[in-house]
Design a protein around this nucleic acid. Structure first.
Length: 423
RNA sequence: GUGGACGUAGCUCAGCUGGUAGAGCUCCGGACUGUGGAUCCGGCGGUCGUGGGUUCAAAUCCCAUCGUCCACCCCA
C-alpha cells in the first residue's frame, strides 16, 4: 500500500491535546509580550534562502526541497522561518511601523534529512522575530519568552546555552586567528574536521571526537575576541539575564547553523532527548534584512521545534486530558431514532458536545459507546420514552436516571453541564 | 550522504535448527430479548513490508528495494 512519505507523520486525534496545549501556551505568551501572528507561504523563491540562510550552510547545500514550477521559477519549501518573515517585513514596508515589529509564527518546515529521533523531513516550528531594534533587552525578552514557555508546559531538564557570534567587525579578525590556529593542528584533526576547516571553521567546535576536543582546548574562542561594541552588547545581555532567575551557561563553542547570525546566539537543550536534544535556538541577525534587499535593520529571533517539545513532555508524562463529550443519545427503534436525531440537533445548536450511534449498535453497545466517549450523560429514547413524552437521562457518573420532558431536555442538560464546567 | 538494528492481525508481540500462521489488547455479538465501566464465551480481522532467488517446501535462508528505529553529518 501507499505509505506517507519518508520522514513525515500523521497527527491523529489522540495526539492532538498535547500539541494543542503547546500551541495554546505559546500563543498566550507571545501575545502577552506584544507579538502579532504572521503566516508566510509554504514555499518561497529559492534565492531567499540562498541569500538569507547562506550558501555555506548545510541547509542550502543539501537539505532543501527545491522544485521548478510550471512557470519556470525555482521555488523551495521553507526550511526555516526567519528569512520568510524578514522578507515579509520588507515587502510590506513594516520598517515604516513603530519599531521594533514583533511577530510570531507557527509553521511547517521542510528539510531533506535522514529521519531519526526528534527529526523529520516535515516538522513544525513555533517562532518569534523582533525586527528593528538592536536593544540587548530585546534579546533577553526573546530568551525569557521561550524559557517561560518551557516552564509553563513543564518541559523537564531544560538548559540554556548562550554565546555571541560578534559582527562584521570582529568576526573576520577572529576567523583569521582561528584559521591559523587550526592550520597548526590540522594533521591531528579527524577527517570531518579537516573538511570543516575549509568550509566553515567555526564548525570544528561541534566535533565529538576526543582527540579533536583535546586539540581544540587551546583554540581561541569568538566570545573572547569580540570587538568593543559587541562586548558591550553581550555584557548587557548577560546583566539583564541575571535579573531573572534563569540559569544559563556561557558556551563559546556554541555555533548556530545559519550564516545570518550576529552577536547573541542561544540554544535551549533538553537532556531527556538523546542526540537531537536541541529543542530551540535563536539569536540576533542584524545583517539579514539588508542581505535580502531591505534597509539596514537589526533584529533577533527564535525558533523551537514542536515535535521535540512534545517528546520531552511525553518523557515527563505530561498528558493533558483527552476531549470528552457531554451527552450521548441512545435511540432504540426506528420511530424513536427520529426523535433522537431531532434532539441531537437541538442540543448541538446550544454548543453541547453530543453524539449518537451510527453503527447500528444494540442498546448495550450504545451504552458502551457512551462510556467510551466519556460522556457525562446518556439520553435514552425508546418506545417507552416516546409514549411518556419524557427522555430517560442517565448520569454516567452516578448511574442515576431521570425522566425529563423533551421540551425541557436542553435546559436540563445545559444547567448541569455548565455547573460541572465551573467546578 | 555514511554506519548499525528491525519490519508477522488496527495495536503490543510469539512463531526453536525451513514443513504453508498464534496470543493478548481493541472492535462486534452473546450470557444479561431497552442500559456502560467487572467476568466468561463466541466472532470479525493477516498479500507474514514489497519484489526476486535457493528449495519438493520459505514468516523462517540469500539478494534487492521500500519503510521504521538508533547513531554520524547537521539541525527544531
Amino acid at each position: 500500500m501507499v505509505q506517507g512519505p519518508k520522514g513525515t507523520y500523521d497527527v491523529l486525534p489522540p495526539d492532538q491535546p498535547l500539541r494543542e496545549a503547546v500551541i495554546t501556551a505559546a500563543r498566550r505568551i507571545f501575545q502577552a509580550a506584544g507579538y502579532g501572528r504572521i503566516c508566510t507561504p509554504t514555499f518561497e523563491d529559492t534565492s531567499l534562502f540562498e541569500r538569507g540562510v547562506g550558501l555555506s550552510s548545510d541547509i542550502v547545500r543539501k537539505e532543501m526541497y527545491t522544485f521548478t514550477d510550471k512557470g519556470g521559477r525555482s521555488l523551495t519549501l521553507k526550511p526555516e522561518g526567519t528569512a520568510p518573515v524578514a522578507r515579509a517585513y520588507i515587502q510590506h514596508g513594516m520598517h515604516k511601523l513603530p519599531q521594533p515589529v514583533k511577530l510570531w509564527y507557527y509553521e511547517r518546515m521542510f528539510r531533506f534529512e535522514r529521519p531519526q529521533a526528534g527529526r523529520f523531513r516535515e516538522h513544525y516550528q513555533l517562532g518569534a522575530e523582533a525586527i528593528g531594534s538592536d536593544d540587548p533587552a530585546l534579546d533577553v525578552e526573546l530568551i525569557m519568552m521561550f524559557a517561560s514557555l518551557y516552564e509553563a508546559l513543564g518541559v523537564p531538564e531544560v538548559e540554556l546555552r548562550l554565546s555571541s557570534m560578534g559582527d562584521g567587525n570582529c568576526r573576520p579578525a577572529y576567523a583569521r586567528k582561528l584559521s591559523s590556529f587550526l592550520a597548526s593542528v590540522l594533521p591531528g584533526l579527524c577527517r570531518d574536521c579537516q573538511e570543516r576547516v575549509s568550509i566553515n571553521p567555526l564548525r570544528v567546535f561541534d566535533c565529538k571526537h576526543e582527540s579533536c576536543l583535546a586539540l581544540l582546548k587551546g583554540a581561541p574562542l569568538l566570545v573572547d575576541n569580540l570587538c568593543h561594541e559587541c562586548q558591550l552588547h553581550f555584557d548587557s545581555v548577560r546583566r539583564l539575564l541575571d535579573l531573572f532567575q534563569t540559569g544559563y551557561r556561557i558556551d563559546g563553542t556554541l555555533v548556530r547553523g545559519f550564516d545570518y547570525y550576529t552577536r547573541t546566539t542561544f540554544e535551549f537543550e533538553c537532556a531527556r532527548l538523546g542526540a537531537q536534544k536541541g529543542i530551540g535556538g535563536g539569536g540576533r541577525y542584524d545583517g539579514l534584512v539588508a542581505e535580502i534587499g531591505g534597509p539596514a535593520t537589526p533584529a533577533a529571533g527564535f525558533g523551537t521545534g514542536l515535535e521535540r517539545i512534545v517528546l520531552a513532555l511525553k518523557s515527563a508524562d505530561v498528558a493533558p486530558e483527552a476531549a470528552v463529550i457531554d451527552v450521548f443519545i441512545i435511540g432504540l427503534g426506528s420511530q424513536a431514532r427520529e426523535m433522537a436525531v431531532k434532539q441531537l440537533s437541538r442540543l448541538r445548536r446550544l454548543d453541547i458536545a453530543v453524539d449518537i450511534d451510527y453503527a447500528g449498535r444494540k442498546a448495550k453497545g450504545q451504552m458502551k459507546q457512551a462510556d467510551r466517549l466519556g460522556s457525562r450523560f446518556a439520553v435514552i429514547i425508546g418506545e417507552n420514552e416516546i409514549a411518556a413524552g419524557r427522555a430517560t437521562v442517565r448520569d454516567m457518573g452516578s448511574g442515576k436516571q431521570h425522566a425529563v420532558l423533551f421540551a425541557e431536555l436542553p435546559a436540563w442538560l445545559l444547567e448541569r453541564i455548565e455547573a460541572r464546567n465551573c467546578q
